Simulated assay, not measured.
Amino acid sequence: MNRFLALAGPWLMAFILAGCAAGAVRAPDATADNGPLTIARQGSFFVGGRDVKSDDLSLLPAYAPGGTISVEQMYVHYQVPVDARRAPLVFIHGCCLTGKTWETTPDGRMGWDEFFVRRGFPTYVIDQASRGRSAADPSGIVAVKGGRAPADKLPQVFGAAQEGAWAIFRFGPQYPEVFPGMQFPLEAQAEFWKQMVPDWLNALPTPNPTVPALSQLAQKLGGAVLVSHSQSGIYPFQTASLDRRGIAGIVAVEPGACPAADSDMKPFAGLPILVLWGDFVPLSPRWAPRLKMCSDFVAAANRAGAKAEMVMLADVGLPGASHMLMQDKHSLKIAAWLAGWIDGHVARQ
Score class of each variant (00 low, 15 high):
Ala165Val: 13
Tyr175Glu: 04
Ala288Gln: 14
Leu274Cys: 04
Lys53Pro: 09
Asp127Thr: 11
Ile92Tyr: 02
Cys20Gln: 12
Val117Arg: 01
Val251Ala: 00
Phe91Val: 05
Gly111Thr: 11
Ala306Phe: 00
Gly256Asn: 05
Tyr175Pro: 04
Thr31His: 11
Gly181Ile: 10
Phe179Tyr: 15
Gly249Arg: 01
Ser215Cys: 15
Ser295Ile: 00
Ala240Lys: 00
Pro138Lys: 04
Cys20Val: 13
Val211His: 01
Glu191Trp: 10
Leu89Cys: 06
Leu217Asn: 03
Gly67Tyr: 08
Arg133Tyr: 10
Ala335Cys: 15
Gly132Ser: 07
Pro185Thr: 12
Gly159Leu: 11
Val316Gly: 04
Ala84Pro: 15
Gly249Tyr: 00
Asn34Ser: 15
Gly246Asn: 07
Met110Lys: 08
Ser44Asp: 15
Ala87Ile: 03
Asp127Gln: 06
Gln174Trp: 10
Ala314Trp: 14
Val178Asp: 08
Val76Ser: 08
Asn202Cys: 08
Gln195Cys: 08
Ala135Met: 12
Glu114Gln: 13
Thr210Trp: 05
Val346Tyr: 01
Pro319Val: 09
Asp279Tyr: 01
Leu271Trp: 00
Leu276His: 05
Ala218His: 02
Lys100His: 04
Leu59Pro: 03
Pro180Asn: 06
Asp137Arg: 02
Leu325Gln: 11
Gly249Pro: 03
Gly222Lys: 11
Leu59Trp: 13
Val178Ser: 06
Glu72His: 11
Phe237Glu: 03
Gln174Ser: 14
Gly66Pro: 08
Ala190Met: 13
Arg109His: 10
Leu313Tyr: 05
Ala87Leu: 03
Ile168Pro: 02
Asp315Tyr: 10
Ala257Trp: 02
Gly132Trp: 12
Lys329Gln: 14
Gly35Ala: 15
Glu103Arg: 06
Gly120Ile: 06
Gly278Ser: 06
Thr68Gly: 05
Asp113Gly: 10
Arg244Pro: 02
Ala6Phe: 12
Leu154Arg: 13
Lys100Ser: 10
Val25Ile: 07
Arg286Phe: 11
Pro88Trp: 01
Gln231Ala: 03
Ala301Gln: 00
Gly19Leu: 14
Leu338Thr: 03
Met74Gln: 03
Ala306Val: 01
Leu276Ile: 02
Met312Glu: 14
Tyr78Leu: 02
Gly305Lys: 11
Asp127Cys: 11
Thr206Trp: 11
Ile247Trp: 00
Gln195Pro: 03
Trp102Glu: 03
Ala308Cys: 09
Phe116His: 06
Ala21Cys: 13
Ala347Cys: 02
Phe91Gln: 04
Pro282Asn: 08
Ser295Lys: 00
Asp264Gln: 05
Gly164Pro: 04
Lys145Thr: 11
Pro10Thr: 08
Ala30Cys: 09
Asp328Gly: 10
Asp56His: 10
Ser322Asp: 09
Val142Ile: 15
Trp102Ser: 10
Leu5Ala: 12
Leu204Asn: 03
Pro255Asp: 03
Val298Gln: 00
